[in-house]
Simulated assay, not measured.
Amino acid sequence: MTTSSTRGERTAIVAGGGIGGLAAAIGLRRAGWSVTVLERRPDLGEIGAGWSFALNAVRAADALGVGDDLRAVSVPTQAGATLRTPDGRYLMRFRPDLDMALLANHRSDLHRTLLAHVPAECVRAAAEVTGIEQYEGGAVVAYRTPDGPEQLTAEVVVGADGIHSAVRRSVFPDASGPVFQRILCWRGVSASGSVWPVEGFQTWGRGARFGAHPLPGQRVFWFLTVRQDQPGARYDDDPAEIRHRIGDWHDPITALVDATPPESILRHDIFDLDPLDTYTDNRVVLLGDAAHAMTPFLAQGACQAFEDATVLTAQLSGDTDIPTALAQYNRLRRPRSQRVQRLARRDPKISLSTNPLAYGVMTRLTQMAGGAVAARKSARLWDWTPPALDQHHANPVEGE
């Protein structure tokens, strides 16, 4: 058995090397902790397509010291305040002087940027967590590698290993698993320069939503979400199925699908989690999707993970008592993140309705309400201020 440090610092194990796990590792290292990241996949590169970040996530990234890096791999997108119908009519249009653009980036670009802040010796790939045993003062994490089983001890274990979290299953075996939300989503990124410029938009159809965000390098991330009664649907030709679903929707929707290499198109069933009773158990804490996986309809999943990492860092700074600090993290994070989680589950019940009457009422009310109402709704999500982080014990990190 080994420990996660040989230098006398406080020690943490982060299960999961995605965006949330890396953000937590960066924050804890800046607070003086020795951190080991265990990533199940052998390839440390992030899979996926694109996404967008609102002001609350940018504030959290700034607090963690990576805000400039986030901005450097991102471009503004107007998709948060530009809403259209399939025939091209605007229900809501971005107002440059009033609306705030989101920041859009490719997942792999952001992941690579965050990974550069965590020394290579702190990250173990192909390390799948299989169990956790707590004891007074710490925990033992069992994990499997290509060379066989291993164990690692630390004072804190952070479960940032996604919606199917092994940490959550180990510590909270009675918690319910992922819940299918009757939604199927395709995602893709157009070839550089093929369809450009695109400022960002969302299009609401009956039982379907298409969205597009510009990305650096004159690429465009797009998604199509549709109602799907059962998970596991498979199609011989995903691009053809997508074209069938969007029909003659307005430009440049079909052009974006046509400009995307078919083999790169991703198809996922959308699951979330029922709210958990707690995010912590003594020395173990959950973060991001492991704690509060949500549907993507508010574009807040990764944003909430950044918030989690910032609050966790603040609570574990200095010489605080660890169980007390984690209990405070739970008290601060669970109400807000679960409110966002509930809103993200509720949104598609309306915006993905297949009922013609409901769709008509929704689009008329959205057009009548205009951008001011949408801005007030967004502000309630984005109006979050990160805690001050104590940088007194900060470790140097690569790239600084």
Score class of each variant (00 low, 15 high):
Gln218Cys: 11
Ala293Ser: 14
Ser4Val: 03
Asp272Met: 06
Phe180Tyr: 15
Leu70Val: 14
Ala12Asp: 07
Asp308Asn: 09
Gly131Glu: 11
Gly318Glu: 00
Thr85Leu: 13
Val226Arg: 14
Asp68Trp: 00
Arg345Tyr: 05
Ala293Trp: 04
Ile132Arg: 06
Trp51Ala: 03
Ala240Glu: 12
Gly88Ile: 02
Thr320Gly: 05
Thr130Leu: 12
Pro348Ile: 03
Pro96Glu: 06
Val340Arg: 11
Met92Lys: 02
Ser194Glu: 12
Arg380Tyr: 07
Val75Ile: 14
Leu312Asp: 06
Ala240Gln: 12
Asn56Glu: 04
Trp204Met: 07
Ala344His: 05
Gly8Lys: 02
Leu224Tyr: 02
Gly188Met: 10
Leu22Pro: 02
Ala302Ile: 00
Arg10Met: 10
Leu343Trp: 05
Arg7Glu: 07
Ala127Gly: 09
Gly232Ala: 01
Pro86Ser: 09
Thr320Ser: 04
Asp289Met: 05
Arg283Ile: 06
Ser264Thr: 15
Ile253Leu: 11
His164Tyr: 15
Gly18Phe: 03
Asp69Ile: 10
Asp229Met: 02
Lys377Tyr: 13
Ile242Ala: 08
Gln341Phe: 06
Glu400Gln: 08
Ala49Tyr: 07
Gln328Leu: 10
Val123Ser: 04
Ala160Asn: 05
Phe94Trp: 13
Asn282Ser: 07
Ala81Val: 00
Gln341Trp: 06
